[in-house]
Design a protein around this nucleic acid. Structure first.
Length: 360
RNA sequence: GCGGGGUUAGUGAAGCGGUCAAACACAGCAGACUGUAAAUCUGCCCUCUCCGAGUUCGUAGGUUCGAAUCCUACACCCCGCA
């Protein structure tokens, strides 16, 4: 068992574990909200902590563009910069290969992006991404991979993306070793390698083997929730469940719908991140008991005095903010509404994870 | 009182003889968002028995094959001069 992770010996199904990072221990399974630009949108770090969150993500691509890793380094590193002492994980920028597909060009060396804001040319490669992530000062970092959509068009590129992801994985690992060789084991960040392979089970299984063989600290599952159906995603998660290395943490990238999160945890996933709780919140939708979705902007809530969810212990529900109040704040465009519902939605996912940890 | 301008769907505002149930914006209603170019985007938004039909563009007449668009009268609003 790794010095950084311990979990139940069970290899299939939900499991409880402890991940040890240089910024503290993380109990798994755990949901990690995305703070892409250094902050979970609309929330203070204190509000994030109030939801039970243990790890917050930040994004390499976005922070590299603005304000730049040198500025953040100068300001004391990501923790000081973002006013967060607890663990921070940075994503590599690989997802932007997918989400910014219209303004990027992939080559073997790396990916060239056009900054959507300034038009500047941005270059990201495995080496560059690792350098930025380490410079930022994240406690857990992710290998730079090649992400394809799983819509009808993207599926044709699965094999190519799989192959490139693994050629790049070696470069990610080499650069990581180079930059961390002088760090003490307790002081170095943890590296997650990413498994790809689209909806091809053979590729997925081999991808997982390659990630395991690369010696990384954790295994990330990428390339899901990018256009495939829910059934296809679940099928793949179910398939992969038997092939994970029991000694390493498994991080499912980008999944955060409550039903999907449950399914993932029940199939051996330890960590998940997603923009859904905060984005949905800003757009006026909240999850309530039973994984139901509530559109708080609906007219029927205009005079509803009740909280978002009677059985919720989040700060928003506990304080008694009514659906009628929240609907009004949404209708008048007051950002407070998005903040209050973000707290609720993140808490909703954290509570699911806590329940699993308490049951196991 | 005289001269000029105006009156369009919930609001603002295009249209100025046919392709107009009428651009566009806002408001309203519903929905979508899964490693955040997302406080964004999509649909609906006169009525109905809603793949079609029926009533609209201050009111009432008129011209025309055909009018929100032209003419006449009236009503109301705005600006000048009295």
């Amino acid at each position: 068992m790794s010095q950084y992770f311990s979990a139940d010996p069970s290899t299939i199904g939900a499991r409880k574990g402890t991940l040890t990072t240089r910024a503290g221990k993380v109990l798994t399974p755990t949901f990690m909200p995305d703070g892409t630009r250094g902050a979970v949108k609309s929330l203070t770090p204190e509000q994030v902590i109030s939801t039970g969150v243990q790890v917050v993500l930040a994004n390499t691509f976005h922070l590299h563009l603005q304000p730049g890793e040198e500025v953040i380094h100068k300001l004391g590193g990501l923790h000081k910069f973002a006013n967060r002492k607890a663990p921070i994980l940075t994503d590599s920028g690989g997802f932007q290969v997918f989400s910014l597909a219209k303004i990027r060009k992939i080559a073997e060396e790396g990916v060239t992006f056009k900054d959507p804001r300034t038009g500047d040319t941005i270059f990201l490669s495995p080496e560059k991404s690792i350098q930025i992530q380490i410079r930022l000062g994240a406690d857990m970092i992710v290998a730079f991979d090649d992400v394809v959509a799983l819509d009808d068009i993207g599926r044709g590129r699965t094999q190519e993306a799989y192959e490139r992801t693994h050629r790049w994985l070696e470069r990610n690992v080499a650069e990581f070793k180079r930059l961390t060789k002088d760090m003490k084991p307790d002081d170095r960040p943890l590296l997650f390698g990413v498994a790809q392979g689209g909806l091809d089970k053979e590729l997925r299984r081999r991808s997982l083997e390659l990630v395991h063989a690369s010696g990384v600290d954790g295994v990330a599952i990428g390339g899901l929730s990018v256009g495939e159906t829910r059934a296809e995603m679940h099928d793949m998660l179910e398939y992969l469940a038997t092939f994970y290395d029991p000694a390493r943490p498994r991080f499912l990238l980008g999944v955060g719908d409550p039903a999907d999160l449950r399914f993932a945890v029940e199939h051996g996933i330890d960590m998940l991140d997603c923009v859904l709780p905060t984005r949905n919140a800003r757009h006026g939708t909240a999850w309530i008991s039973g994984d139901q979705k509530v559109h708080l902007t609906n007219q029927k809530y205009a005079d509803d005095a009740g909280p978002i969810d009677d059985s919720c212990d989040c700060a928003t529900c506990a304080a008694g903010y009514s659906r009628g109040f929240l609907r009004h704040q949404f209708k008048v465009g007051e950002p407070l509404a998005g903040t209050l519902v973000s707290i609720h939605n993140i808490r909703y996912l954290e509570r699911i994870c806590e329940d699993y940890r308490n049951q196991l």
